[in-house]
Design a protein around this nucleic acid. Structure first.
Length: 311
DNA sequence: CTAACATGCCGTCAGTGTCT
DNA sequence: AGACACTGACGGCATGTTAG
């Protein structure tokens, strides 16, 4: 939290903390509450559940019925049923699996491929509509959605593909997530997907720089195996070389810090994907509404043509 | 102006699925 | 079987909005 360096409003915080503890419904973010509000009543069991919220929303009706009629269902059975339902990530991947031009969530090729950043290979549109705001909406086979501005040259000018990973950070931005300037000028980075943790001895970091170094913990660097180690950098001790209880404790702390760091990054990535998924759904809703309107109009036109005149 | 509420983001924990 | 990734849930913080 300190990395944001924002001003604290103690009064507000105390009040909000009190709210949270008293039990009144605390303010929740939309992205969370979208699914939580509907699935909150499912949290009847003590403790936390790991049921995918999307799955909960998708099966809210049957869950309600079963809960009302039977009261308590077998938790194991319930868990089995719910665990079979895929996450939103998988849902989105399945939705876009039949569209070559729509990359799946988690795929990096859209950024790494030949297409320019933010522009995805597009499928041939099968339907083109214009919104009330003048934007053109093209629907490709399988439901790929493309938007273009009025000034663009029709379909050829399509630019933003809403259902893509265009919101993903560029590779360069994703490369280094934490960078800290140590007192001696040494740079320390966390690179996701890297392979080697390097201990930078005697380097003290600003505690505000997240979990790279906490308290009196030494700072660590994660490097690619091929990377030449800078002078003064010592590889972290392997568990096999540890003996004393203090070293074991240090190793445990080290592992924990690493795990927290990874989980932090994973959570960020997960939220990014979730946002993307929600945007995708919203886009689909918009497109389907337009499509529906078109079809209704078409139906009316056909009715006018083929219905017998009653003059 | 201020308290209360809303919104958005974040870090962490824990359960589950997948991979090796 | 263990390691790891993914993600829901929870609580905290900062900031915006609104009613009194």
């Amino acid at each position: 939290m300190s990395k944001r360096g924002r001003k604290k409003y103690v009064q507000t915080n105390i009040r909000q903390m009190a709210m949270a503890t008293v039990g009144s419904q605390p303010a929740r973010c939309v992205t969370d509450s979208v699914v939580e509000s509907r699935s909150a009543h499912l949290q009847t069991r003590a403790g936390r559940t790991a049921v995918p919220a999307v799955a909960q929303v998708a099966t809210i009706t049957e869950t309600d019925e079963s809960a009302d009629s039977e009261g308590v269902i077998d938790s194991h059975k319930h868990r089995e049923i719910l665990s079979q339902r895929p996450s939103y990530r998988r849902i989105l991947n399945e939705l876009s699996s039949d569209v070559p031009g729509v990359p799946k969530i988690g795929e990096e090729k859209s950024e790494e491929g030949g297409s320019p950043p933010g522009i995805t290979t597009m499928a041939v549109p099968t339907s083109i509509y214009q919104t009330s705001t003048g934007q053109y909406i093209a629907i490709a086979q399988g439901g790929a959605v493309q938007l273009s501005n009025p000034g663009s040259e029709g379909v050829q000018g399509l630019q933003a593909l809403t259902m893509t990973n265009s919101g993903a950070p560029p590779p360069s931005a994703a490369l280094v997530h934490y960078a800290a300037q140590a007192a001696d000028g040494k740079q320390q980075f966390f690179v996701p997907g890297s392979q080697v943790v390097v201990q930078d001895e005697e380097t003290e970091l600003d505690p505000s720089h997240m979990a790279v170094a906490t308290g009196d913990m030494p700072a660590y660097q994660i490097r690619a195996p091929a990377t030449a180690l800078p002078q003064g950098v010592v590889m972290a001790a392997s568990p096999g070389s540890l003996h004393g209880p203090q070293q074991l404790a240090e190793e445990a702390t080290r592992k924990r810090e690493l795990r927290l760091m990874k989980n932090r990054e994973a959570a960020k990535e997960c939220r990014r994907r979730k946002k993307e998924y929600v945007k995708c759904l919203e886009s689909r809703v918009a497109i389907l509404e337009v499509q529906n309107k078109k079809l209704i109009e078409e139906l009316e036109t056909l009715k006018d043509i083929y219905s017998p005149k009653t003059d």
